[in-house]
C-alpha cells in the first residue's frame, strides 16, 4: 500500500513567550491523500501557519509526528530533512521570497541545481515550468523586474521544480490584489487538476472555496 503524501498525528507546538508557554497547536491530526486539495482556514493566531511549518518539516513539533510519504520527519537528521524538503515538498510563501539578483529562470533552477540536476535538463524544465505558469516570456527578467503576481507564479514554478509529492502554500494570495489573486487561484485549480496534492493556508475565502476539503482551525485545534 502506498503511504499518503501527508500524515500528521496529535501535533502539538508550544512556544515560550514572556515567561509563559503558548500552546500554538493542541493535538492536531490530519491526513492528506494524493491528489487532495486541502485549505486550512482560521483567524490569525489560530495556529494554521504553525501547522504548515510542522507539516513541511521547517519546525519541529513539541509532540506528535508528521509523516511524508511514510517517512517520519522526527527520525531524520537535519541533512536528511533538508533533502526531503528539497525533493518531496514544494513551498509557496506569502511574500514570494525569490532571490532578487537572479532571473525568473535562475530562481526556478535553484532547487534543481541544489538537487544535482544537470544544467541542460534543469534549464529545459525551468522553461517548461515558466511556460506552465504563463511566464515563459519573462524567463530572463530579474525577480525585481516582475510584478507581484508574476513573482508568485515564479515561486509556484520554483516549488514545482523537483516534482514534489506535496505542495504547501502559506497565504499565497495574501500580498496580491483581487485580480492577480484570481489568476493564482486559477493556477492552483489547474495544478490540482493536473494531479498536484495541495495544502493551502489562507484567509482568502475564494481560494478556500476552490479546495476539495476545508479545515477550520481555532485556538490550535481543528474544528470541523
Amino acid at each position: 500500500m502506498i503511504p499518503p503524501p501527508l500524515l500528521a498525528r496529535e501535533l502539538r507546538k508550544d512556544y515560550p513567550m514572556n515567561g509563559e508557554t503558548v500552546h500554538a497547536l493542541r493535538g492536531v491530526s490530519l491526513r492528506v491523500d494524493a491528489g487532495d486539495y486541502v485549505a486550512i482556514v482560521g483567524p490569525s493566531g489560530s495556529g494554521k501557519s504553525t501547522l504548515l511549518q510542522l507539516l513541511g518539516g521547517i519546525d519541529a513539533p513539541s509532540g506528535g509526528a508528521v509523516e511524508i510519504l511514510g517517512t517520519r520527519l522526527g527520525s531524520l537528521s537535519d541533512r536528511e530533512l533538508t533533502r526531503l524538503r528539497l525533493t518531496r515538498l514544494g513551498f509557496i510563501f506569502q511574500r514570494f521570497h525569490l532571490l532578487p539578483v537572479l532571473t525568473a529562470r535562475e530562481n526556478v533552477e535553484l532547487p534543481m541545481a541544489e538537487a544535482g540536476v544537470a544544467g541542460r535538463e534543469r534549464r529545459a524544465r525551468a522553461r517548461e515550468l515558466l511556460a506552465y505558469v504563463g511566464l515563459d516570456h519573462r524567463a530572463d527578467h530579474r525577480a525585481t523586474q516582475l510584478s507581484g503576481g508574476e513573482m508568485q507564479r515564479v515561486a509556484i514554478a520554483r516549488a514545482l521544480a523537483n516534482r514534489p509529492a506535496l505542495l504547501l502554500a502559506d497565504e499565497p494570495t495574501g500580498e496580491l490584489d483581487a485580480a492577480t489573486g484570481h489568476e493564482i487561484l486559477a493556477l492552483f485549480r489547474q495544478l490540482n487538476a493536473d494531479g498536484t496534492t495541495l495544502v493551502v493556508v489562507t484567509h482568502d475565502e475564494r481560494l478556500a472555496a476552490e479546495a476539495g476539503r476545508i479545515i477550520h482551525m481555532l485556538d490550535g485545534t481543528i474544528r470541523d
Binding site: 513541511g56 533538508t82 528539497l86 513551498f91 511574500r95 532571490l99 535553484l110 532547487p111 520554483r158
Partner: peptide
C-alpha cells in the same frame, strides 16, 4: 536572514 530562511525551507543545504 529572511531570504536565507526561505532557501533553507525549500531545501537548500547549510553547505550551500
Amino acid at each position: 536572514l529572511g531570504e536565507i530562511a526561505t532557501l533553507r525551507a525549500i531545501g537548500v543545504s547549510r553547505a550551500t
